[in-house]
């Protein structure tokens, strides 16, 4: 059978361009928030000196000793140095979801039904994982 010729999706160029911008923004956010944290400009919820005595503990024990927030509770502590850095990390993980939304729109416009389904399914999984609906609090 002769090999069928395929071409790349044109959506991948838009994805690449958006991804580059978002990664750059997230790096700036991460860097600034981390400097504010370790530089002592914003007081952390868990003091760094204390953190270095408990970072060798299993997760459950760590949470019990520090009373660190789980799930999306960190949003309540965003004014603290350590959890402002969490915001930078959360933004970095969220980049894929944002880029997938761009793909979703592109596939919907182009009528790529299979890829529309795959993109929707992946966005569904991302929301499921990010929303913490499966895991409980961890405490």
């Amino acid at each position: 059978m002769e090999q069928k010729k395929f071409t790349n999706l044109h959506e991948q160029m838009a994805y690449g361009a958006l991804l580059e911008k978002l990664v750059n923004v997230s790096m700036i956010v991460l860097f600034i928030s981390f400097v504010l944290y370790v530089g002592g400009f914003l007081a952390p919820l868990i003091p760094i000196e204390q953190l270095s005595t408990v970072w060798n503990l299993p997760l459950e024990e760590f949470l019990a000793q520090t009373d660190a927030p789980t799930g999306w509770q960190w949003v309540n502590h965003i004014h603290t140095g350590d959890y402002l850095s969490f915001a930078g990390i959360a933004f970095l993980v969220a980049i894929t979801g944002i880029c997938y939304l761009v793909l979703l729109i592109g596939f919907a416009k182009d009528g790529h039904k299979i890829y529309l389904f795959i993109t929707s399914a992946e966005i569904g999984l991302i929301i499921l994982a990010a929303a913490n609906v499966m895991g409980g609090s961890g405490h």
Binding site: I48, W55, L59, I89, A90, V93, G97, I126, L128, G138
Partner: peptide
């Protein structure tokens, strides 16, 4: 693209910015 497991660890509190 594969970020789902990262979200799980993030939500469980197993992520230290330091």
């Amino acid at each position: 693209v594969d970020t789902n497991a990262a979200w799980i660890y993030f939500n469980k509190g197993a992520v230290l910015p330091l």
